[in-house]
Amino acid sequence: MHPETSPPVSPEAPRRGFLAKALALGCGGLATLAPLGAGVWAILDPLRRTSGAAAFRPVTDLAAVPADGVPRRFAVVADRVDAWTGFAAEPVGAVYLRREPGSDTVQALSATCPHAGCFVEMNATGTCFRCPCHNSAFTFDGGIVEPSPSPRPMDGLECRVAEGGAVEVKWENFYTGIAAKVARP
């Protein structure tokens, strides 16, 4: 293609040329490896992070959950660390609590839709849950109402009533979009 620039390569060149090329690529590559390696090392840092072990957190009092079988929404308050910032007692999410008539047992459902992670709300008539994003619908005890894009029922959370009537929920996040209920690390 460039007959006018025939390179003045000396006869012993091919072998020496190969060595020089390999060395040049090696040195250049090695030198570039340091910044690239450090960068990749640092950018993968989030993979080491977990949101901490799931723990029971007080959400409300038993008296605030009417025994009428209708779920009520409550904020979950917890200390939260966002990278370098520590937030004391911040709302970190929401749960629906529900109590059957005459029962002291409270059922807790995460308000996060198992389909794609939107915030599940009550439908307009207050007869079931409905997710505003893709219309997943759930019964008050979390079961799927067909047709629904959600691959699994709403995520139940462990819930207990402490002495003195404080309702405590074991707050966890789960992977969305899959049939199995798997907690995030």
Binding site: V9, A24, L25, C27, G28, A34
Partner: peptide, 26 residues
């Protein structure tokens, strides 16, 4: 000496110098 080509002759020297700079930095 006689003329040479940028690749690989000068590139090799450049690459060695780059590696040396990075070695000093590290």
């Amino acid at each position: 000496g006689p003329d040479a080509m940028f690749w690989p002759d000068q590139v090799l020297k450049d690459a060695v110098a780059m590696l040396a700079v990075m070695a000093v930095v590290l």
